[in-house]
Design a protein around this nucleic acid. Structure first.
Length: 143
DNA sequence: CGCGGAACTT
DNA sequence: AAGTTCCGCG
């Protein structure tokens, strides 16, 4: 089963009153590519929530295309990623080049490679905030 | 590379 | 608010 579109819970979107609220958020975009197993540009890393940017300039180009920013590059994209540190969405895996990590206190993944979730109980309690992309099911933990 | 301040845009 | 652009610093 594959879903054509990715669904995020309401709280994961920019506020409706915010300018550019219809635009995708960068971390949504990253999860979209990761979930799709897009390959080349970005992929999951060894640890829980960790991902590696395999082709930084290509990822930047893809992001720029999505946002209509033709001059996007990794320097600028990575600045946006660094703004996520204080927001507790991401942090850097120190010492590993182009490697970042999602803070999954806010986000839990099912079918995450190497971390299958078998407990139906924990699934049940969180199914309201759920979206699917590719063969990964993302379950959100509202805090 | 990776970091974070600062000004600017949407 | 969530980036984008630019940049000096380690």
């Amino acid at each position: 089963l594959k879903l054509a579109s990715v669904l995020f819970p309401d709280w994961a979107y920019k506020p409706a009153w915010s300018p550019g609220s219809r635009q995708v958020q960068l971390w949504h975009f990253l999860l979209e590519l990761l979930g799709r197993g897009e390959g080349g540009a970005i992929g999951w890393g060894g640890e829980w929530g960790e991902f590696v940017i395999r082709d930084p300039e290509r990822l930047a180009r893809l992001w720029g295309e999505r946002k209509g920013k033709p001059h996007m590059n990794y320097d600028k994209l990575s600045r946006a990623l660094r703004y996520y540190y204080n927001k507790r969405i991401l942090h850097k895996t120190k010492g590993k080049r182009f490697t970042y990590k999602f803070n999954f206190s806010k986000l839990i993944l099912v079918n995450y490679p190497g971390h299958p979730v078998t407990s139906t109980g924990s699934k049940q309690s969180l199914t309201q905030c759920r979206f699917t992309t590719g063969n990964c099911v993302f379950i959100w933990c509202v805090v």
